[in-house]
C-alpha cells in the first residue's frame, strides 16, 4: 500500500530533475510584437508537440497583458519591455491569444501543425 505513493514521489522528482536538465536545451524561438495594441504577426504557425519559447516585445508605451485561456498563459508586459513565455507542447490545432488590456484589437492565434 505504502509503496505506491513513494513510487509516485520518485516519478515526480525524476520529472523535476528532467525538467531542470532540459532547461538548457534549445527550443524553437518565436518572436511576437505588440504595436498600436495589435499583435504582429497576428497568426503564428508553430510545430506541434514541441515546446516553444515565445518572445513578446511590447513596442507600445502602455502595458499589455498577454493572455490565453487555451494556452493557460498570463503575463503582464510593461511598455517597451519584452517577455519570455514558454508554451507547448501543443496538439495540432488553433490556440487564440489576446492582449487583455485591449482585447478588441490585440487578437491573435497560434496554429500548431
Amino acid at each position: 500500500m505504502s509503496k505506491y505513493p513513494v513510487a509516485c514521489m520518485g516519478k515526480f522528482l525524476l520529472l523535476i530533475l528532467f525538467a531542470c536538465l532540459s532547461l538548457g536545451a534549445a527550443r524553437p524561438e518565436i518572436k511576437l510584437e505588440i504595436r498600436d495594441h495589435l499583435f504582429l504577426p497576428s497568426e503564428l504557425v508553430v510545430p506541434a508537440n514541441t515546446k516553444i519559447k515565445l518572445i513578446v516585445y511590447n513596442r507600445d508605451p502602455t502595458p499589455e497583458e498577454f493572455e490565453s485561456y487555451e494556452l493557460n498563459r498570463e503575463k503582464v508586459i510593461m511598455g517597451g519591455q519584452k517577455a519570455i513565455i514558454f508554451i507547448g507542447p501543443l496538439k495540432p490545432g488553433e490556440y487564440p491569444f489576446f492582449g487583455e488590456f485591449n482585447p478588441k484589437t490585440a487578437q491573435g492565434k497560434i496554429i500548431a501543425e
Partner: peptide
C-alpha cells in the same frame, strides 16, 4: 505551478483533459 511552468522551471506537458467545452474559463 502554472507560473513556474510558464517560465520552464517545471516541465510542461500535454493537457490531461479539456473541459472548456463544458465550462469556459472566461
Amino acid at each position: 505551478v502554472q507560473l513556474l511552468i510558464q517560465i520552464d522551471w517545471l516541465p510542461s506537458q500535454m493537457p490531461l483533459w479539456d473541459t472548456s467545452a463544458l465550462l469556459r474559463e472566461d
